[in-house]
Design a binder for these strands. Structure first.
Length: 473
RNA sequence: GGCGCUAUCGUCUAAGGGUUAGGACGGAGCCCUCUCAAGGCUCAAAUACGGGUUCGAAUCCCGUUAGCGCUACCA
């Protein structure tokens, strides 16, 4: 049974790329029937914020994908330290007493890579211990094998065989001079302790993985599988950042723009992954069914947005597709919420409500369209556009429409066919083209010239309301 | 600078030695039609560059270029 983890660090809102990483983890583990772990990587105490934590949970909850276990790294520091010292005890790490400033000064990129301080590596056990006992601060560094032509290798499920000469890996830190673990140490210790079987994360960690392999080898006989995901980048080629690209990088932007979570998940999955069958519009269930690491690309994907439109056009299209095909019973509550937050009173009759939603949804692209463009379907306070007014000003139209209202009021039958029959009869009687009343009725009932088939509009608006609006002419 | 990864229409991508290089979004046009969408059809649009290997290269190899990542006591 695979165990995977999503490990965000709470230093900002939930990023679109992080959301996708979460989704890929989720897809894999739900398909295989394993365990999804949410681990908050909050070891960088100074940069963590409560707001960020909230934003992560908000985003994840909105996506509607759940996890099974949850941990905070800050509560597991003792474990990380213990594992770091275990590496030290095996002789695979050493204390580096070089002060921070001195280290920085010593590192000149022009003179080649910094690999470590030979003097510190060479320090005897006794000297090292004595200086530590005397209270001299130090960082604990991994003792990367030198001059052995040693290659560190691992197999990535996406990027295939990876290898790097140990002479190109610097002596990275395990514990900081304040005793707290670094990201590499904490992450690997937790992955081991939580028995993570598959590490699925952004490609920005591909190079780091060589270090992680070294840590895993020092601590365990087992090695997790790795799968790195191509990055999401901005149209200018840079990586997505809030400072530079604004709110597009946050998942809340899409939520607030009226996306249904299913569509957003669908969109994110198509960035860097595909089912190899030309299908792009898929339910989460279908994606889960088709998901595999072979379908993941190796090149970065550009999120296509502009200053004028922060939403990727493909995402909009996908949202419209989901909006008109998902079960109405799933959509209706979302529409209800959209109406509520827009201050439009929500009809009490559930059956009528769902019917209305079902009729109008194929013309809408986002949830916000329901209270905006669809206002007249749900409440009596709506404005009539000048174009609609024109349709009603056609000579004879108002009188005929009022008569149609009277006629419809005499019958319980409110089916589309009945309405059509009555409308055509009234039109003929008044010597009007049916089109005049067809367009006219849409105009009275919705205040608009655009919308569903005129007869469907009657049923969408509902009998009482429709008749009242006709009679009020 | 060093190391690693990547490179197909504007964007997301398919094709893993033989295709007129396919699909989708977006764009243009036509059809359908009670309006608007949707839907159907058509068009424009790509293998970064240079060398190899091969009867044959988008595909394999090498080089160049470009982008990205790592190179922190950030994650």
């Amino acid at each position: 049974m695979p165990r995977v983890r999503f490990a965000p660090s709470p230093t900002g809102y939930l990023h679109i790329g992080s959301a996708r990483t979460f989704i890929f983890n989720w897809l894999y583990v739900r398909k295989e029937g394993g365990t999804m772990v949410l681990r908050i990587d909050d070891t960088d105490v100074e940069r963590n914020t409560e707001a960020s934590m909230q934003s992560i949970f908000d985003g994840l909850n909105w996506l509607g994908l759940e996890w099974d276990e949850q941990y905070a790294q800050s509560e597991r520091i003792a474990l990380h330290q213990q594992m770091a010292w275990k590496i030290f005890d095996k002789g695979l790490a050493y204390r580096d007493f070089t002060p921070l400033q001195a280290t920085e000064a010593e590192r000149d990129p022009a003179s080649g890579p910094w690999l470590g301080d030979p003097a510190m590596r060479a320090l005897s056990q006794e000297d090292s211990q004595r200086r530590a006992d005397a209270g001299e601060p130090f960082v604990l560094r991994y003792r990367v094998p030198r001059d052995e032509n040693r290659w560190v290798t691992f197999k990535d499920l996406v990027y295939r065989k990876q290898s790097k000469n140990a002479d190109d890996i610097e002596d990275f830190a395990l514990l900081r001079s304040n005793g707290l673990p670094t990201y590499h140490m904490a992450s690997c210790a937790d992955d081991l302790d939580l028995r993570i079987s598959h590490i699925i994360r952004g490609q920005d960690h591909l190079s780091n993985t060589f270090k992680h392999v070294l840590i895993f080898e020092a601590l365990s006989d087992t090695m997790p599988e790795f799968a790195h995901l191509p990055l999401l980048i901005a149209p200018d080629g840079a990586k997505l950042s809030k400072r530079k690209h604004g709110p597009v990088v946050s998942v809340t932007t899409y939520r607030d723009a009226g996306f249904v979570p299913q569509a957003y998940v669908n969109f994110l999955c198509m960035l860097g992954w595909n089912p190899k069958n030309n299908q792009e519009f898929m339910t989460v269930e279908e994606i889960k069914e088709k998901f595999s690491f072979e379908g993941i690309n190796r090149s970065n994907a550009t999120v296509n947005f502009s200053e004028a439109d922060p939403i990727d056009p493909k995402a909009s299209w996908l949202n419209a597709q989901h909006l008109r095909t998902m079960p109405v019973s799933v959509l209706a509550p979302m529409v209800r919420e959209a109406l509520e937050s827009a201050g439009v009173p929500v009809p009490a009759d559930d059956a009528q409500f769902e019917q209305t939603v079902d009729i109008i949804r194929s013309r809408y692209a986002v949830l916000g369209d329901f209270p905006e463009k669809g206002r007249a379907y749900f409440c009596d306070h709506f404005t009539t556009t000048p174009e609609a007014e024109e349709k009603l000003n056609v000579p004879g139209a108002r009188i005929a429409l009022r008569e149609l209202g009277e006629t419809l009021a005499t019958s319980e039958d409110f089916s589309e066919t009945h309405i059509e029959e009555q409308l055509r009869a009234v039109a003929e009687k008044h010597g009007l083209k049916a089109g005049v009343l067809i367009n006219g009725s849409r105009a009275v009932l919705t205040g608009q010239t655009v919308g569903p088939s005129a007869f469907a509009v009657f049923t969408a608006v509902g009998r009482e309301r429709a008749i009242a609006r006709l009679l009020a002419l």
